[in-house]
């Protein structure tokens, strides 16, 4: 066991971690931040996406000790300070961008990373960016619609 210190959602945290402790285990079991989900644990589904130093990563595929000194942001850090939803979260709610909701934390974190780099993506860019985020309910149309709306671009969809 070794002590690891990082900043999670703006707060400095320190805790013990084994070499093999994944960042997602550290967040969920160590810090009780269970908003980050483990979907596949084989680095394919993207439900565990968090931001490490501003970049989207799969927290099931990075060890906690590798995040020493890093700025980590999870879904719990996405809402506004007063607890109201951030624009991306609000857009997911408004456009029904979730069905069972299991993939949603990863979808929101991936969307936030995309919009930080590309504030006005095309629909094709949004779909391409979500290549590593799987929705088993196949709710992609409304997820894409929500992300487009969050970027200030309302879009027509084939089926309402």
């Amino acid at each position: 066991m070794r002590k690891v210190t990082m900043t999670v959602n703006g707060k400095s945290v320190s805790a013990e971690a084994e070499g093999r402790t994944l960042l997602v285990e550290f967040l969920r079991e160590g810090l009780g931040l269970t908003g980050t989900h483990v979907g596949c644990d084989t680095s394919q589904c993207g439900a565990c996406v968090v931001h490490v130093d501003g970049r989207a990563v799969k927290s099931c595929s990075i060890f906690a000790l590798e995040a020493e000194g890093a700025e980590v942001r999870t879904i719990e850090g996405m809402a506004n300070e007063d607890g109201s939803l951030s624009p991306i979260q609000k857009a997911f709610q408004d456009h029904h961008g979730l069905q069972c909701g299991f993939c949603t934390p990863g979808m929101v974190m991936s969307a936030a990373a995309l919009l930080a780099e590309t504030p006005k993506p095309t629909e094709a860019e949004v779909r391409h960016h979500l290549e590593g985020n799987l929705c088993r309910c196949t709710g992609y149309h409304n997820i894409v619609k929500a992300i487009m709306a969050a970027s200030g671009q309302e879009m027509q969809v084939a089926a309402e």
Binding site: S43, G46, V49, V52, R55, A56, V57, K58, S61, I62, S110, A113, L114, H129, E131, G132, N133
Partner: peptide, 9 residues
């Protein structure tokens, strides 16, 4: 290569 999150690591 891979997807955006994989490319970041």
């Amino acid at each position: 290569i891979g997807d955006p999150a994989v490319r970041n690591r």
